[in-house]
Design a protein around this nucleic acid. Structure first.
Lengths: 112, 112
DNA sequence: TGTACATGCAACCAGTAGGTTGCGGATCAG
DNA sequence: CTGATCCGCAACCTACTGGTTGCATGTACA
């Protein structure tokens, strides 16, 4: 792995920050329309706007693009989502651990 | 619950999209310095910039602010992170389910 | 071959986001 | 009281982002 995990977490959270992009991810997860034009029909914006969003998702490696004839099929690739979940769980665990330590210290201080 | 979950997911992913903000969350999770001035000393930017970021985190309810004397103590509040993880897991589950259905259909079609 | 559809690329535009500086108001220490 | 902090608010600037339009390319098909 060439790129450090930080970069990926960054691009993944960045990609997920936009509601339209999350909507696209949801649609792709459900196996919905997989071309930019098809997706554009379901949303109030241009095909090019959708294409840009798909490009961002591809940048985060959340989506793969495969050209089939004259159309481009997009497919979800959920692995990078694990990176995001991993970051969150690390932070949560650290926080919980610290809370646990605090709790123990309080109980030690007040042994009644 | 007054605010629909969508809004919260939106603000949470939005807050987490910025590297500086994630850094702040990590520091707070480790129980590090909890005032804007203190955090500013550890990062190459102004106290006001940090304050803005903390404001964004507070907007996502990822952080609570408590005034103590002349300083403001910030504390992590990890619950909203669960919303984000929930969204991701929903998407992943749908995708996996669809892949499972596809696999079953393929096997049914090719019963050798 | 000619027409219609699906893309990609580039230019352009308005709004927002991240950052800075410059205040003025509280609060603690001497 | 005075000075040193710590803070919040507001104005301002720049860069990026989300969107649009226009155009040129490539593929399907009659």
């Amino acid at each position: 792995m060439r790129a450090p995990a930080h970069r990926q977490v960054d691009s993944v959270f960045g990609a997920l920050a936009d509601p339209t992009r999350r909507r696209l991810v949801e649609t792709l997860a459900q196996g919905g329309t997989v071309t930019a034009s098809g997706l554009a029909e379901q949303l109030p914006m241009t095909r090019q706007a959708i294409a840009k969003h798909l490009s961002a998702l591809r940048g985060a490696e959340l989506v793969t693009a495969k050209r089939v004839g004259r159309e481009t099929r997009y497919e979800l690739r959920p692995q990078p989502l694990d990176e995001a979940v991993g970051w969150i769980q690390t932070v949560s665990a650290e926080w919980d651990g610290r809370l646990g330590a605090l709790r123990r210290s309080v109980e030690a201080r007040r042994p009644g």
